[in-house]
Nucleic acid binder design. Structure first.
Lengths: 384, 384
DNA sequence: TTGTAGGCGTTATCAC
DNA sequence: GTGATAACGCCTACAA
C-alpha cells in the first residue's frame, strides 16, 4: 500500500537501517549516501510511519496540552504560546476538559496511551483531595513513562499553599472560604512518606493571590469600602486564590464583615455569569460601589448588567476584571484588570515541556501578576 | 517496563488475542471471560499502547485541526467546536500555521505521518496556484491513506471561482458572481472545469461575500457614500471574498470610483493592523464617513485609532467589523458586524470529519452570514 | 560507514 | 468463543 522504509532503501540501493539513520539524522552517514537516500525519499514521496517509529523507539512526538476550553482566550493564548515553542517537529494535542475532573483524567490516560513526549496541564485545578490523588497518580505514571509534565497556571501538586508564593502570608484570610475542604492537607511534600512525589513535574504558578490583593487595594485606595465580588467556579484553585487575595486586602482594613454578603459564588468564567452575578448583587441590596469579577470575561458581563440597570461605569459603580485579555482595553469602558503574562508563561511551559529550559529551583516558579488601571474604576460616587 | 497486553493476558489466564478483542469491543467474547480480562486490566492499570495498535490496525485516533492561530477567537471557537464533536476517544492535534503556506504543508505531512484519522483545515486559503496545487496533492494523499478531510471556512479545492467570483476580474469586481445571498449552494459546480477533483474532500464554505455585501449595503442605506475599508492579508480567500462583497454593493450604486483610495490592503487580522489602517486612511485624506474592517479585531483597532484622533464613533465616523466575536457586543461602542456561526460550523466539521454526518450535496455547503447592527454604525454626520 | 537481525505491542487471519 | 501466529514498519544493538 503505502511506501515504506524498505522501498526507499531499495530505490537508494542501501539498507533500511541506513535510510532510518539518514532520516533521524542522529547518526553518521556518508554524504553521498545520504544524498541518494534523500533523493529516493523525494521521488517516492515517502512519509515516515509515525506509529511504527513510535513503537520501535518507544516515544512519540506528541505533546499534550490540557485546557478547560480552547475557545477561552486564557487557554487559547497559553496553548498558542506553547505551540510557538514546540515548533514543527512536535505536534500539540489540545484537549478540552471543560473543567471536568473526569475528563482531565481521561485525557491524561489517552495521552499516556499515545506515549506523549510531554504534557502541559493548564489552568485551575479542582480542589477535591480525591481528584488530586487520582491526578497525581496519572501524572506520576506519565513521568514514569518518560513524559515530561508541566503545570501552567495552577499550583504545584500536593501543595496548594505554595501556589501564590506571597499568598502564604495572611493565613487567616482563607478561613471564610472553607479551607477545610481545600487540598492543604495533601501537602507534606518534604519528609512525607513519598519522597519526591512530584517526580520531575515542573510548575508555573500564577500569582493570582497577589494580583487580586493589589487590585482590591487599588479600589480601597480609591475610597471604596463596599466591594462586590463575582467569583469563579467553586473548588478551583484559581477561584480560591483570587478570592483569598481579595480578602487579604479587605482584612488588612478590617473590612471582612460584609465580605460574604458582597460575594457571589460558584459562577463560571463566562459573560453570562458576570451578568447574573451583578444582578444578584443588586438584588441582595448589598449596595456595592465597586464590583470585582473573576476575570475579564465575567467583568464584561457585569458591565452589561449594570448598564442595563441604568448604572454608569465607573461613575456610579466601578468594575474590574482579571487576566487582561486582548480585548479588555477596547471594552466599554476600558477595563481595569490584572495582567498575567499568559503568552510568555505558555512559551516557557512549552520550553520546559521540551526540556529546552531548565526547571526553576524547587521545580516551581511563580508568574507575576501586574495591576493595570484603566477607565472602569474611579472613586466612589456619593449618591444624593 | 510498561505493562503490556501479554501481561494482562497472563493475569486473566487468556490469550493476548482475547484481551485485544475485549478491549476493542468489536468481537464476541464470553461474558465471564470479558469480566476476568477487565479486572486484570484494572488491577494492572494497563493502558493500551497507541502507537502499537495504530501500527497494527493501520489507523490512529488522531484528528488534525489546522488553524492560523489558536489564540485568535475565530480559530479558537471553531477548534473548540470540532473537539466538542470528536469526543473522548479521538484526540485533536491543533496545528498553528500562522497563515504560512509552508507550515500548512509541513503540518499536513506531519499529520499524514501520524496516520491521522481525519484532518480539518480551517480559515483562509492562500490564493497562490502553486501552493494550491501542493496543498491539493497533500490532501489527496491524505484521503488516499484513508483520512477524511474537511475544509472549514475556506472555498473548495480547485474551485477558486466557486468561492465568490474570480479575483482576476480587475474592474468589474464580481458583478453577478455573488453566489446569491447566503443560502446559495456553491455546490452545483456550475460548469466548473474540474468536476469532483476533490476525492471525498468535504467543504464548509463561509458566505463572506454575501455577508460583506449586506454590511456595505447597510452603510449605504444609512447614507454613507465614502466607505473606507481596512482589508485583511493579501492573497487570502477570506480577504478577497469580503472585499468582493463590499465592491459588489458599491458597484450596484456606481460608487466604485474611489474604492481603491478608500481601501487599505495587506493588513493582518489583528488590532494593530486596524489601528494603522485607520491612520493610513486618515492620512490619505480619503475622508471616509465610515470604515469597514477585515474583522472585529481589526475593527477594534480602527476604533482605538479614530478615538485617539478625536473622532467619535459613530457620531463622526461609523465603524463595522466581521465575525461577531463574543466580545464585540461589549466593545466601545458595541460593534456592528456580520455573524458567522463559527461554533456550529466547527461542530459540523467535526461530525463530518468523523463521518458521523453525511456530506452535503456536491461535497460543499455554504455557511450563511448574518448582518448584526449595533451601535458603531449610524447615519453620516455633516461636518460644519 | 553500512548491513543484519531481532524485537517493539497490537491486530488480524487462521485453525480449533 | 478462544488460541496460536504472522504481519505491521521502524529502530538499534551488534557485526562486518
Amino acid at each position: 500500500m503505502a511506501v515504506t522504509l524498505a522501498d526507499v532503501a531499495a530505490r537508494a540501493g542501501v539498507s533500511a537501517a541506513t535510510v532510518s539513520r539518514v532520516l533521524s539524522g542522529n547518526y553518521p552517514v556518508a554524504a553521498h549516501t545520504r544524498g541518494r537516500v534523500l533523493r529516493a525519499v523525494e521521488e517516492l514521496e515517502y512519509v515516515v510511519n509515525g506509529p511504527a517509529s513510535a513503537l520501535a523507539a518507544a516515544s512519540s512526538d506528541l505533546v499534550g496540552v490540557l485546557v478547560n476550553d480552547i475557545a477561552d482566550p486564557f487557554f487559547g493564548i497559553i496553548a498558542s504560546a506553547v505551540q510557538s515553542e514546540i515548533g514543527d517537529r512536535k505536534l500539540p494535542v489540545v484537549c478540552n476538559t471543560g473543567g471536568s475532573p473526569e475528563r482531565e483524567l481521561t485525557y491524561l490516560t489517552l495521552l499516556q496511551r499515545q506515549r506523549a513526549a510531554a504534557v502541559v496541564v493548564t489552568g485551575s485545578a479542582v480542589e477535591d483531595p480525591e481528584h488530586q490523588a487520582a491526578l497525581a497518580a496519572r501524572l506520576q505514571r506519565l513521568t514514569e513513562g518518560g513524559a515530561r509534565v508541566v503545570l501552567c497556571g495552577r499550583p504545584p501538586m500536593g501543595g496548594s499553599a505554595a501556589g501564590g508564593g506571597t499568598a502564604a502570608r495572611g493565613a487567616g484570610a482563607g478561613a471564610g472560604t472553607g479551607t477545610g475542604t481545600g487540598a492543604a492537607e495533601t501537602a507534606g511534600a518534604p519528609g512525607g512518606p513519598a519522597p519526591a512525589a512530584d517526580g520531575g513535574i515542573v510548575t508555573l504558578a500564577f500569582d493570582n493571590t497577589g494580583g487580586a490583593r493589589r487590585l482590591t487595594e487599588h479600589l480601597l485606595s480609591l475610597g471604596h469600602r463596599r466591594i462586590g465580588y463575582v467569583a469563579g467556579p467553586a473548588d478551583r484553585t484559581t477561584t480560591r486564590h483570587r478570592l483569598d487575595g481579595h480578602r487579604q486586602a479587605l482584612e488588612a482594613r478590617g473590612l471582612l464583615a460584609d465580605a460574604e454578603l458582597l460575594t457571589v459564588h460558584g459562577c463560571a468564567y463566562d459573560r453570562p455569569s458576570g451578568y447574573d452575578g451583578a444582578l444578584e448583587l443588586l438584588r441582595r441590596g448589598a449596595a456595592p460601589t465597586a464590583v470585582l469579577a473573576a476575570n475579564d470575561t465575567v467583568a464584561l458581563g457585569v458591565c452589561a448588567a449594570l448598564r442595563e440597570q441604568g448604572l454608569r461605569v465607573p461613575e456610579d459603580i466601578s468594575v474590574a476584571g482579571f487576566d487582561d485579555f486582548p480585548y479588555s482595553v477596547d471594552a466599554h469602558p476600558a477595563l481595569t484588570t490584572v495582567r498575567i503574562p499568559l503568552h510568555s508563561a505558555g512559551a516557557r511551559a512549552g520550553r520546559l515541556a521540551l526540556g529546552r529550559e531548565g526547571a526553576p529551583p524547587g521545580g516551581v516558579a511563580t508568574v507575576p501578576a501586574e495591576l493595570i488601571v484603566r477607565a472602569s474604576t474611579a472613586p466612589p460616587h456619593s449618591f444624593p
